[in-house]
């Protein structure tokens, strides 16, 4: 019929005829989806895809990085507000002004009663002279304007009371106010109420931000990988006809998602590491004197906590994105 027979010098070397060439178990060839030699193939395919679609790859990495950067900063704010709140619990005391006519033994008895009140850590007695000196210091007055007041000091005797939990300040103030010999209790409620409110807001805000940005990142990665998958649709169909399992086809795309996720996580971590301490210094040295005394978390303290979280988030977003992109393309 044709000359094709003449083109077959290998007539003496038959095509693989041994059934043992194909390993079979229970009638099915076992898939080596995650064998070392396959991993090499998956990595090569992933690299090829990433390079082939480099614009989309870069766009995805930048988007994931931007989302995770906002997540990282939300976390940093929430963490610092919590940290400051914890500091204030011990450093913003409640001032308990005692009645002028109280005798020394009565003051001593009141001191013990305050210490026994729930949520109280410690109490320090402040004389009127100390109170005046503290006031002058807090107001930054050094030129003796208050000198005249030393003779007729309007400030009375008081206790500075430190609390265990600043969120229970109101209840503790009421309890101390009911004690005999207490003239009034000055609480730093404006500051603490504001901090508690800020803390709650930041907590809810960062959660919402994380959720929204997480979903957004998944959608973006899904679209990027969908584009790749769509471009390679015919290849996927061929692979399916030849007998490739879904996971054999999926792995390169999943690894692609993971790579995008990892780079999307490394960038915000780097930005955070490089800029965080400088940013905190900028905040600290604003005109608000109060901020100078506040403690802030350092980058070295925050990094071990957020680095793994951001990495897991990045990788998770990558995997979710790639799997959701693949789903409808494998039904051949």
């Amino acid at each position: 019929m044709t000359n094709s027979t003449a083109n077959k010098p290998e007539n003496e070397t038959p095509i693989p005829n041994k059934r043992s060439d194909i390993k079979q178990t229970d009638g099915k060839i076992k898939s080596g989806d995650l064998k070392f030699r396959n991993i090499k193939y998956y990595l090569a395919e992933t690299f090829r895809n990433l390079v082939r679609n480099k614009i989309m790859t870069i766009t995805s990495v930048i988007t994931v990085a931007a989302c995770l950067l906002i997540v990282v900063f939300s976390y940093a704010i929430a963490s610092n507000v919590n940290f400051i709140l914890a500091y204030l619990e011990t450093s913003v005391p409640v001032m308990v002004v005692i009645e002028d006519e109280l005798t020394v033994p009565e003051v001593d008895a009141l001191f013990h009663e305050i210490l026994q009140t729930e949520n109280v850590t410690s109490a320090t007695f402040i004389t009127p002279e100390e109170a005046l000196r503290n006031l002058a210091e807090n107001l930054g007055i050094t030129d003796g304007i208050l000198a005249g007041l030393e003779e007729a000091n309007p400030l009375g005797r008081s206790f500075n009371v430190e609390l265990k939990d600043i969120r229970m300040q109101s209840q503790t103030v009421v309890a101390i106010g009911l004690l005999n010999g207490v003239a009034r209790v000055n609480e730093a409620s404006v500051v603490t109420d504001m901090l508690i409110a800020v803390n709650n807001f930041v907590g809810i805000f960062s959660f919402v931000v994380m959720m929204v940005l997480g979903i957004l990142s998944v959608v973006i990665i899904t679209n990027t990988i969908k584009l790749t998958v769509n471009n390679r649709r015919n290849e996927i169909i061929i692979m399916k006809y030849v007998g490739a399992t879904d996971w054999f086809i999926k792995w390169p795309f999943v690894i692609e998602g993971i790579v995008i996720g990892i780079f999307g996580a490394i960038i915000p971590m780097g930005i955070m590491w490089a800029s965080y301490d400088g940013l905190i210094d900028t905040i600290r040295y604003t005109d608000f004197q109060m901020l100078l005394q506040m403690p802030f978390r350092t980058a070295t303290e925050l990094f071990p906590i957020f680095a793994p979280v951001v990495m897991v988030l990045g990788v998770g977003i990558g995997i979710l994105g790639s799997i959701s992109a693949m789903r409808k393309y494998l039904s051949v």
Partner: peptide
Amino acid sequence: FAMQITDATN
């Protein structure tokens, strides 16, 4: 490729 997807060795 057709062999790669099975358990075939290099």
